[in-house]
Amino acid sequence: MSDRAFQVMPIDYASGLAELRAVRETVFVQEQQVPLEEEWDALDPLCHHVIARDQDGHPIGTGRLTPEHRIGRMAVLAAWRGQGVGDAMLLALMEQARNQGWPAVSLNAQVSAEAFYARQGFIPHGERFEEAGIQHQSMRRALHGTTLVETGAGAIAAMLAVVTHARRGLRIYTRELDPGLLDHPQVLDALRRFATATRGGEVHILVQDAGTPQRALAPLLTLAQRLPSVFTFREVREPVDRAYAAAFVANDTSGYYFRTLGHRFDGEVNLDGAGRARQLRDEFGRFWERARPCTEFRALGI
């Protein structure tokens, strides 16, 4: 994020066309070599559009919401990328969709931007495809209630969302540190950023099997050793607790990703499920009190 000031607001297509063109043709046509005739379509006049402007009123970003409940044409000028402009526009478009009473929105993300959308709760579905010579991934987010997670890619996106929206606390219940998920580079990077950027942050992790990730020298253990004041591990010991079949991550706001069967990645994610997130944190707390500290994780010789 940056201290550079900008503002996001709705814009009428007809009266704002010059500003929309200034951003979209710079980003898509000039930078990404999208043919001009493919950039503008018959949907544009029918869409809800937003514009981001800098403090001097110059356009720096655009996005649209189509009648088919799709977010698209998200573009930010190069000098403003990484400053929170894209997040602000995405949130504004989702708010417009909620005001329309839509249950969900979808989008086709350029693969390079997939993690950006995942952090805001969009989950990939279907196979990647090519559009205007660029690889894309379809993604979807429910605006009320849960979004289904069906694949490993969806699980990674769900983790990124829940971790990104944590304030100071994460609770993770896992069988054996979920190979393919908790060792994924994007998930590890999200956990590292949370741990280093959050003063007083805590990541409590319950495992059913401490031995397997220890023998495998799981990358998350390496990260935890570097940040021992943030990461704490315990192993479930009570037979009644070890029979618990599910797995989940819950943050301290209103986000969670829950899997009914802990050895599978399919489940549900919700960034606005305060009641369910609180229930999962409470459930985690009861397991935590009966579990044993994994002191062996502190010195693995990695």
Rank of each mutant, 00 (worst) to 15 (best):
L220G: 09
A115C: 05
C47R: 07
H125Y: 15
A274I: 06
R242G: 08
E202S: 08
E68L: 11
T232C: 04
R226M: 11
R53C: 02
A216M: 11
P228M: 06
L20G: 03
A92H: 09
A291Y: 04
H58A: 03
M159F: 15
H136I: 11
P35N: 04
T260V: 13
A197I: 05
R242T: 11
C47W: 01
A118H: 13
Q135M: 11
R292F: 09
V236D: 10
T198V: 02
L170G: 02
E127M: 08
R4V: 09
P45R: 15
P179N: 03
A132T: 11
T212P: 02
A243Y: 12
T151I: 07
A52N: 02
H184G: 05
M1A: 08
I205R: 07
V187H: 03
L65A: 06
D56H: 15
R64C: 09
F122K: 00
V29C: 10
L271G: 08
A97E: 07
P10S: 06
I156S: 02
A155W: 04
Q135V: 13
Q110S: 07
D252P: 04
T26H: 05
I156D: 00
T146P: 01
E95T: 01
L91Q: 01
G72V: 04
V8H: 08
V34N: 01
F287Y: 07
A132H: 11
R4Y: 02
V105L: 00
F258T: 09
V162S: 02
A155H: 06
A250Y: 06
L220D: 13
T147G: 06
R290V: 11
E19T: 08
G84D: 04
G211Q: 15
R292T: 05
E37F: 00
Q55M: 13
F233K: 12
G145D: 03
L206C: 00
A224R: 08
Q33N: 14
A79S: 13
A79C: 00
E25V: 07
R140I: 15
L220Q: 03
G121Y: 02
V269M: 15
T146E: 10
F284C: 00
A218V: 07
P124A: 00
E289W: 14
I205Q: 09
E114A: 14
F297P: 08
L43C: 13
R141H: 05
A157P: 01
Q100T: 04
L148Y: 11
E296R: 02
I172T: 05
E19W: 13
A155D: 01
P59M: 07
A75C: 15
V162G: 06
R215H: 10
G273F: 05
E19S: 10
E31Q: 08
D56I: 10
V249L: 14
E95Y: 01
E130H: 08
V240K: 12
T66Y: 02
H125T: 08
R21N: 10
R141N: 12
A132I: 05
F122W: 00
R4K: 02
F194C: 03
E114C: 10
L143Q: 05
V230S: 09
V163R: 14
I51A: 04
V29S: 03
H165D: 00
G275R: 15
Q225Y: 12
Q208F: 15
G101Q: 01
E127A: 15
G273R: 04
C47V: 00
D3S: 13
D56R: 14
D54Q: 10
G285I: 01
C294F: 11
T212R: 15
I172A: 00
A92R: 08
